[in-house]
Design a protein around this nucleic acid. Sequence first.
DNA 1: AAGTCGGGGAT
DNA 2: ATCCCAGACTT
Length: 348
Amino acid sequence: MNRDHSITTALTAWFRVKARVLPWRTIERDPWRSLVSEFMLQQTQVDRVIEKFEPFLSLFPTPEALARASQDDVLAAWAGLGYYRRARNLHAAATSIADRFGGSVPTSVDDLLTLPGVGRYTAGAIMSLVHHEPEPIVDGNVRRVLLRLDGEDLPDAPATDRRVWSRAGALVSESGHPAAFNEGLMELGALICTPRSPKCPECPLVAMCRAHDAGTQEDIPRPKKRPNRKELFGAALIVRDDTGRLLIRRRPDVGLWAGMWEAPTLEQESHPPSAEEVSAWCGAAATPLSLRFIHQTTHRIVHFEGWTAESAPALADGRAVSGEEIGRLGISNAQRRLLRLAEVLPEA
DNA sequence: AAGTCGGGGAT
DNA sequence: ATCCCAGACTT
């Protein structure tokens, strides 16, 4: 009875009893539902995904259905989840599945890796959780659990990740139950072996945990290096035509909030746009509204200020829409907040 | 190896 | 405030 065998046995037994009921955890896993869930779950907590999952699948129940959809409809269904490139990648992946794989999600790591937005983690998740193949997966949870389990106080570096992937591969092969073991590792990281204040007394692996033996579980893994957030200043222009429709436009297809709709916003990194700058940009005399807020993302601190003008002759790429139409477009949470404060959209 | 890409929960 | 989250991709 070696140590790895004790680990895999205890973990799979725990998972079979303690696993949460989640929309994508059906008895027989559906490949498309699983792929959608994995895209949504990238860098996103389970609770955030649950509310978006079924509505998205109702709109796009198959790869072909998503492949046929417009980019606007896809982004609208994704709105609020963040990391919108995932939605565009999933859309492109669906097209590829329809065109190159006969409408079925590929069933090998190599084929899965050809899909845009599918990396080593997602490919391994489909192979192990859906097809019960002993492919390793390493996400943030697995990384933390395995480093603590082996008591490895290693730096945040690629060499550490290579070690963790190797360890995950050895364990999933040993387990004999790739799905329950891999998903169990993630579930343990989400529920018990949490970043701070892990619930070691409730952990099925406490007897095998070297970090717990040494009392270093709170110090492992070492914090990731994170760059300082850059500031951004946005002047958002609220302009209505004579029928009360609002001027909006679609953002470029790269960068922040790519492809999402917005009230036209002048963005600068150096300083808040002045009245002269906003006026020159929109081609009319602009005046500030008493509407300011700060929106924070992982890498940005965005200072929004609302402005208005009679018209915007210099903004040729816009389009006028009614309040009702706005509600159906793909709009970031930042712009939704702006439009609520400007009383274009109703409160909450 | 570092930077970019959202938004919100936990502490 | 800070850290993190069922990561992937670009530079």
